[in-house]
Simulated scan of single mutants.
Amino acid sequence: MSPLGVYLHVPFCASKCPYCDFYSLAGDESAMDAYTAAALAGIDAAARVFAPRRADTLYLGGGTPSLLGAARLGALIGRARSAFGLSDAEVTVEVNPADGLRPLFDSLAAAGVGRLSMGLQSAVSAETAFLGRRHTPQQAADAVRDARAAGIGNISLDLMLGIPQQTAESVEQSIDFCAALGVDHISAYLLKVEEGTPFARRGVGALCPDEDAQADIYLRAVELLGQRGYRQYEISNFARPGRESRHNLKYWNREDYLGIGPAAHGCVGGARYYFPRDLRGFVENPAAVLSERDDEPLALEAVAARAAKGATGPEALGEYLMLRLRLAAGFDYRETRARFPAFDPSPLPRAAAPMARAGLCQINESGIALTPRGFLVSNAVIARLLDALPGAIY
């Protein structure tokens, strides 16, 4: 069977950004020790159930995983390596830029970390201040240089688009900042004001550029990133050739990955599960997961059993096509039929033709892919395509 991906959710942050809807909380040493012990037990439990499968990606996200410190992170990475092999693996840790990170980077490199994802969000000080970020652009630049000096050369920076007062010129300033640092990967996301966040309570959505202006900013960002050598390979992700995130591609290719930690999600053999957003519950039972389908308790053994059977029905097909259409490459008819033998693509070109004329997708003899303009309305485009497939469920 193909190698797994492993995702560890680390739910600690020094402070909560006002736009963030991810599960995170303040953590003292005791809480972080308890989390680490539970995560180690969770890795062991997953390894027992899914043995002898190996993994070739490990991603520590959050939250701010770097808050755990070198010793805890090293223990988690070491346990994942002993449990899942991690041969020739891509090992990624999310980090927020700050002063004095070189000792941490030295330890991470020694533990086998070869990739960092840093939450820059903007290189314009007024924008980072509005977003509640705690770093300056100079601290971000220093962190990138410190990582390289430690031997971690594969670095991704996050940018946020559609921020209040943002312009095409300020987006270009941020992109040029990233390109000048020579990073290999950039994630550029449109700001979405999530319910229940401080931004929602403050009515920030009304201050953001309108839909047309956001679209212009996004399309300009795609253009600028392409000019600087960053190829768009997913709606919000851009990379130099060969530096695409191997772990995240597992999500969009509907490959198997394990999630471990409070709020983590996993999918194996089409069986989707998640851990509740509850640190205390995770510490008490690091293997207690729920079915994403109906929020009911789900044993990892049941996930493994379904994985062994595989999933090739209409629901799995619809999900696969939906995920693949997030990728700039779209989906290939032959590859899709190899995974889903009953797949009949014949209705799709006719359904896609009006959208292709509008510049939202591209059709060729091998498959269909969305354009950057199509990504802006991807939900509607994908729904129209899938509606053309008899029996496809999504």
Rank of each mutant, 00 (worst) to 15 (best):
Q362P: 02
L86F: 04
A47L: 09
A356D: 12
S125Q: 10
G310V: 07
L191G: 00
S291L: 09
M1C: 10
L224W: 01
E29D: 15
R145F: 14
L157V: 13
Q173D: 10
V10H: 03
L191E: 03
V6E: 02
G374I: 01
G196V: 06
I77A: 04
L161H: 06
Y233S: 03
Q139A: 11
S156T: 15
L104M: 14
P3Q: 10
Y59M: 05
S122G: 15
D256V: 12
R240Q: 15
S187G: 06
R280W: 03
P103D: 09
D256Q: 08
P347Y: 11
F275R: 01
A353N: 12
A221P: 14
T92L: 03
G196I: 12
Q121K: 08
A351I: 07
A179M: 05
S366M: 15
S125P: 07
G261Q: 12
R133V: 09
A147R: 04
G261W: 03
R202F: 00
K309L: 12
V268S: 08
D294V: 08
P11F: 06
D184R: 11
Q173C: 11
G61W: 05
P354A: 13
H135Y: 14
C13Y: 10
W252Q: 10
A179E: 06
G62A: 04
Y19K: 03
D56G: 12
I368L: 13
T167V: 14
L190C: 13
A328P: 01
A31D: 13
L323F: 07
L25V: 14
H265W: 00
P164H: 12
Q362W: 03
D33E: 13
A80T: 00
D210C: 09
V144K: 06
A38W: 02
V93T: 03
T36L: 05
A287S: 09
G269N: 07
L325M: 15
A307T: 12
P347G: 00
I382K: 11
R231H: 15
I260D: 00
G259P: 05
E255S: 08
A239I: 13
Q232W: 00
A38S: 09
G153S: 09
E169I: 14
A34R: 10
S346C: 10
A123C: 14
E292Y: 11
A307K: 06
S2H: 08
G359M: 11
L225P: 05
S187R: 04
S236V: 08
R277P: 00
W252N: 13
L389P: 06
G62P: 07
L323Y: 04
A239R: 01
R79Q: 15
A304P: 05
D44T: 06
G203V: 06
R254V: 12
L249N: 13
A239N: 01
R384D: 12
A288V: 04
G27K: 00
L159M: 08
